[in-house]
Computed example of a mutant assay.
Amino acid sequence: MSSIVLSIRDLQISIGRPLVHGISLDLERGRVQGLAGESGSGKTLTSLAVLGLLPRKATTSGSILLGDDELLGMPRRALNRVRGKRIAMVFQDPSASLHPQLTVGKQLTDHMRVHLGLRDKVADARAIELLETVQVPRAAESLGRYPHQFSGGQRQRIAIACALACDPNVLLADEPTTALDVTVQAGILQLLRDLAVERDLAVLLVTHDLGVMSAIADDVAVMKDGRIVERADRATLFAAPQDEYTRTLLAALPGSRLETDADAGSEAAPTAAEADAVAEGAGDE
Rank of each mutant, 00 (worst) to 15 (best):
L191Q: 12
P176W: 09
A173H: 03
L195I: 13
R193S: 14
L204R: 05
D194A: 14
R193E: 14
A173K: 04
I158A: 07
I160D: 02
P168S: 08
I158S: 01
V182S: 13
A179T: 10
L192I: 14
A173E: 05
C166A: 12
I188T: 05
A159V: 04
I158H: 09
T183C: 07
V206A: 13
L180H: 09
L192F: 03
I158W: 03
E198N: 14
L204P: 02
D167E: 15
V170M: 07
T178W: 04
E198D: 15
L189Q: 05
L180C: 10
L180A: 12
P168R: 11
P176G: 07
D181M: 09
L195D: 04
D167W: 00
C162P: 00
A161V: 05
A173F: 03
D200G: 05
A161I: 07
I160Y: 01
Q190G: 15
T177R: 13
T183W: 01
V184I: 15
Q190S: 14
A179D: 03
D194K: 14
R199D: 01
V182A: 15
L192Y: 06
A163I: 00
T207I: 05
A165H: 06
L195H: 08
R199A: 01
A159Y: 07
R193A: 15
L171V: 14
D167C: 13
C166H: 08
L195Q: 10
E175D: 12
A186F: 11
L189S: 11
Q185T: 03
Q190N: 15
R193W: 06
L191A: 12
V182P: 04
D194G: 02
D167N: 15
Q190C: 13
L195M: 07
P168C: 07
L201P: 05
P168D: 12
T207F: 04
Q190R: 15
V203P: 04
T183G: 09
D194R: 15
C162H: 00
T178Q: 10
L205N: 03
I188V: 15
V206I: 15
L201N: 07
I158N: 10
D200F: 00
E198H: 06
A186H: 07
E198W: 00
A159M: 02
L201E: 01
P168M: 12
I188N: 01
A173M: 01
N169T: 06
A202Q: 03
A165P: 05
L204K: 11
V203H: 02
V206H: 02
L191E: 07
L195C: 11
V182N: 05
L189R: 03
L192D: 06
D174A: 12
E175T: 05
L191T: 04
A163Y: 02
T177H: 04
A165D: 04
A196L: 03
D181N: 10
A202I: 04
E175K: 01
A165F: 12
Q185E: 12
A159R: 01
L195R: 12
T207D: 08
A202N: 01
Q185G: 06
R199L: 15
I158V: 08
I160C: 06
L189Y: 14
L172E: 10
A163F: 08
L172N: 08
V197Y: 01
A186I: 06
A163Q: 03
L192Q: 06
A165T: 02
V182C: 11
Q190M: 13
V197M: 02
T207C: 06
D181I: 09
P176L: 10
Q190T: 14
V170S: 04
Q185A: 08
L205G: 00
E198L: 08
L201Y: 13
